[in-house]
Amino acid sequence: MTDLTVSISSIKMDNPSMLASGILDETGDSLLRMMSVGAGAVVTKSIGMLPHDGHPNPCIVETADGYVNAMGLPNPGMEEFAEELRVIMPTPAPVIASIYASSAADFATIAVSMEEAGAAGIELNLSCPHASGFGMEVGTDPATVGSIVAAVKDAVKVPVMAKLTPNTAELVRIGKAVEEAGGDAVVAINTLKAMVISPEFARPVLSNRYGGLSGSAIKPVGVRAVYDLYRELEIPIVGVGGICGWRDAAEYIMAGATCFQVGSAVGTVGPEVFTRIIEGLEAFMGEYGYPDLDSMRGAAHE
């Protein structure tokens, strides 16, 4: 019997899959739907202090097996979203609230609001590549990242994970800063900063010009990032980037991921992708003699 249960500090999951932030996670009902198709945990849309419309359309371009998006952090603000969470609590799987802010103090304020609304954990968005003054712009300096993690850890009891950007040569140093500030896990990677141009109109397609590339194309980048982080960090790593089948998930786990997130494949494959990945992973682990995730994690390092 293969054991797929896993935990990150106090966040206990039936399986290692999580819904990635930004994907079908802006309403209580959409979060419940993703739990019903097998996600071991769900991460919410990134929530800020105030309601925000995000960038004007177009905010997405379809690529081969993925997307370039610049949603621009649309969200109803922490007060309305807290109510969204309260309505669905208790939930069959843990809800991790993704949050964004431009200062450590605001990060802490939003984290408290999400914890009070029932969030089982906090994911810090330190990596969105298409929002001026937020995300990657506060997430590429190790000292700033450390101060944000420390402030949020002081403010809440639930575990705090930091989602990192691949758009820096400092990835491992930033991961170290998260660990040293008391962070419970790192999440790697967010999208790769990207652009699509329309030759006919001689202009970038996205209204924000820049966006973030997700989907199959970025998986080898994410696997490498997790591999590098695993060599240097003690805290758990959540692997994300281009996972659309069990093989992709297995790669991330063998690179060192404790659990993994699925995003774009919810669009390219469908919400049922969670069930398919978990069933495939379980079959693989059974056939290749991995009784649990601990025995498989980091196998590619040995």
Partner: peptide
């Protein structure tokens, strides 16, 4: 609607996109 491809969740109606 923002993405139209079933991922962003802005057009949710109950549990349906």
């Amino acid at each position: 609607m923002k993405c139209a491809v079933g991922i962003c969740g802005s057009c949710m109606l109950g549990r349906e996109r």
